[in-house]
Amino acid sequence: MKKIFISWSKKRSEEFAKIVKSTIEKLDSDIDVFMSEEDIKAGEFVQEKIISNIENCDILILCFTTENKRSPWLLYEAGYASGLHKVVIPFLFDNDSMWHSWIDNPMNIAREISFCHGDLLKDFTEIFSLKETSTNQHIIENFKKEIELCKEQFRDIDIQCEDLVEKLSSIDKFTITSPIFREKTAYFLSGFETFELWKIIIQSFLYTGKYLWIYGRKNMKLFGGNFNELFQYLDEKSMMPNMDGIDFKLMFLNPDSDEVNFAHKDQDIFKSELRTTMLRAKKIIGTNTVLQKCCRLYSNKRDEIIIRIDNSIIYCKPHFDIKGNPNIMTNAAFEVFSVFSKKGQHCVQKYMDVWNKAIDNRKFEVF
């Protein structure tokens, strides 16, 4: 009888491990599958039972997730089994290219099986010497569904935002004590309006993105010379019908509006910077009438800061001093959530309400 040891660490990995165990037992009832949570009885010595089952197993399966990839316990079990020349197979449940990146990881020599890529039916049948029957195919299809349901249950944030949040989380500036996840929203405690944030936004949009909506005031960082590639890309897209599906919207505060007098503590500097940035925008956009139409001027008080990058919203609520002037937002806290959430739908509607009332930039003398 073939013996399988399933290694896991942390709650989500544990739930995946239970599904893997159940699936293997359905594929072949003659396979003996050991998992510590289910197969250690009260009163038994846990570590002795685990060590004994690793020593007696034929295959050790590790259930890897993004949060447990550096787990000392997984590393220990993998290393111990590898030292005994057991077959060690990492099961990857998340799309994480850095899962085996730590020093002297015994997984550097093991071929992984990815839930996100590849042929799971073929992988399972090769590992356990099974036939690719319609029954086994049905079992694997149910396995995929169970894993997806489990992923959704444990998902910190809606799937539309996962890539963006992962990129933000890789920057130390945003992650000293964040993000914090609540109700499918990622709360970053610092980093708003920084160059690092804009760099990630632009990199996420270029060549693969469809939506980029910006509800700015001066947009100085955007037109400061660091993101010329963005406007070259948009210029190329503007030559295609409907911009090849690209939806780019950018709003400046109208320099002639009453609100410009309340938009910054130092009004003279703000007005000068606003006009200077708009002149830069004119130089960059030039005579491209398609991109000119993507820019508008609003005159209302901005009480919500909204950036849409594809189907994610980056959101910040301004804070005002006792005179009603907004405090500086650079390095402020911000949120990320899906456009399909209730908050996301509110932001989409709010943005479009402001956009529809805003005036065409070409009517302003700078353009």
Rank of each mutant, 00 (worst) to 15 (best):
D247C: 08
L27W: 01
S170A: 15
I4L: 02
L297S: 06
V87H: 08
I246N: 01
Q292P: 00
R182H: 13
Q345F: 08
I328Q: 04
L291K: 01
V348Y: 03
M98N: 14
D172A: 13
D104T: 15
F115I: 09
D321I: 03
K131V: 11
E259H: 01
K218C: 12
M352K: 11
K10F: 07
S134V: 14
N68S: 09
E146I: 08
G43I: 01
I314C: 06
F192L: 12
K18E: 10
F320M: 06
Y76W: 14
L60K: 04
I59G: 00
V88L: 06
Y80L: 10
L297V: 08
C116N: 15
K131N: 13
E196R: 02
N53Y: 08
I51W: 05
I89R: 00
I322G: 00
A358Y: 00
R182N: 12
D235L: 03
V165Q: 04
S338Y: 01
N53L: 02
E112I: 04
A333Q: 10
I6F: 00
F188K: 03
L206Q: 02
V348S: 07
K18V: 08
N311Q: 14
L130R: 00
S272E: 10
F320S: 07
E273N: 15
N136T: 08
A78V: 03
N228S: 09
Y315T: 10
Y315F: 15
C294W: 02
M243G: 00
N53C: 01
K49D: 03
I200W: 00
E304N: 14
E229I: 08
I285Q: 01
L164C: 07
N95A: 07
I89C: 01
P326A: 09
N242P: 03
I180E: 12
I328Y: 06
L92R: 04
I284T: 13
K49H: 07
D321N: 11
M329L: 12
I61D: 02
D310N: 15
M278G: 07
L164V: 10
T135H: 12
M243H: 08
H100L: 08
K173W: 07
F205A: 02
R155G: 05
G43S: 03
S238Y: 01
Q137Y: 13
K69Q: 06
K167A: 11
Y298L: 05
D156L: 13
M35H: 10
S312Q: 09
F174C: 09
Y315V: 04
K173I: 14
N108K: 14
E112N: 11
S71D: 04
M98I: 13
H117V: 05
I202K: 02
L291G: 05
S190L: 05
K343D: 14
N226S: 13
V290R: 09
G209V: 10
Q137C: 11
I359Q: 06
I313E: 04
T208K: 15
A186L: 04
M239Y: 13
E229Y: 06
K3F: 03
E126W: 00
P318I: 05
E67R: 05
K11H: 13
F181D: 09
S170F: 12
I24M: 02
Q292V: 00
A81C: 09
M251G: 03
S13H: 06
M107R: 00
T185V: 14
L230E: 06
S71Q: 01
L197M: 07
D268M: 13
T289W: 01
D353L: 10
N142Y: 11
E44P: 01
I313R: 03
E162H: 11
I284K: 10
I4N: 02
